[in-house]
């Protein structure tokens, strides 16, 4: 696909809308990304082990976070997006191993914890990875908080995106569309080094 920089013109209106060139990535990135500030709502989500977790508390822990919205019956982009994060694990972990990879369901009534387990079974196990679901209303609040609502209310039109954050209080890097492992690692590296410069 021609990844035009069209997306860079898209939704300004909120903070720090810049295209991020990952430090250390020599070649020009064709990934559409921008920094933004998102506040996770205080909702209780359930993971694939039936454990209930407050999302805002989870994201307030001092870990880098890689977050994606998926639905388990998706046959197209979700599996590729999940595969990217899981396949990049050795390289991500080499940079900083305490990251948390979150897959949050956008089809929560279908995606019961049991279905999340079935979905996870298609991929190599990864201790960094947690899959979350919740009530329809709570998931809608999370989607709104991350500006990830689907335009006409149908999940088939949701946009593939990956959200990275180095630490609590730091901005989120929003990467639109599907990306490869190398690109994800470069973006992760850039975010981490950005934190070390600032702090």
């Amino acid at each position: 696909m021609a990844r035009l920089s069209l997306g860079r013109l898209a939704p300004l209106g909120f903070l720090l809308a810049v295209a991020v060139a990952a430090p250390g990535a020599a070649q020009q990135s064709n990934v559409v990304s921008r920094l933004a500030s998102y506040q996770a709502p205080a909702v209780v989500l359930t993971d694939s082990a039936d454990k209930r977790t407050r999302l805002d508390a989870l994201l307030a822990e001092d870990h880098p976070v890689i977050l994606q919205f998926i639905f388990t019956s998706c046959t197209t982009v979700c599996g590729v997006a999940t595969s990217t994060v899981l396949a990049a694990r050795p390289d991500l972990a080499a940079l900083r191993d305490d990251y948390v990879a979150l897959s949050i369901s956008i089809d929560p009534e279908y995606d019961t914890p049991e279905r999340l387990r079935e979905y996870a079974g298609y991929f190599p196990p990864d201790p960094h990875w947690r899959l979350l679901t919740g009530s329809r209303d709570d998931i809608a609040r999370v989607l709104k908080a991350f500006d990830a609502q689907f335009s006409d209310g149908t999940k088939m039109t949701h946009q593939a995106a990956t959200f990275l954050r180095a630490a609590p209080g730091r901005p989120w890097l929003r990467i639109e569309g599907l990306i490869g492992c190398k690109e994800l690692v470069a973006q992760y590296k850039g975010l981490l080094s950005d934190v070390s410069h600032v702090d």
Binding site: G79, S83, T84, A87, F123, C181
Partner: peptide, 11 residues
Amino acid sequence: AEGDVPLAGPR
């Protein structure tokens, strides 16, 4: 897919 992402399972 996406250059370097190995796919698994039914996908």
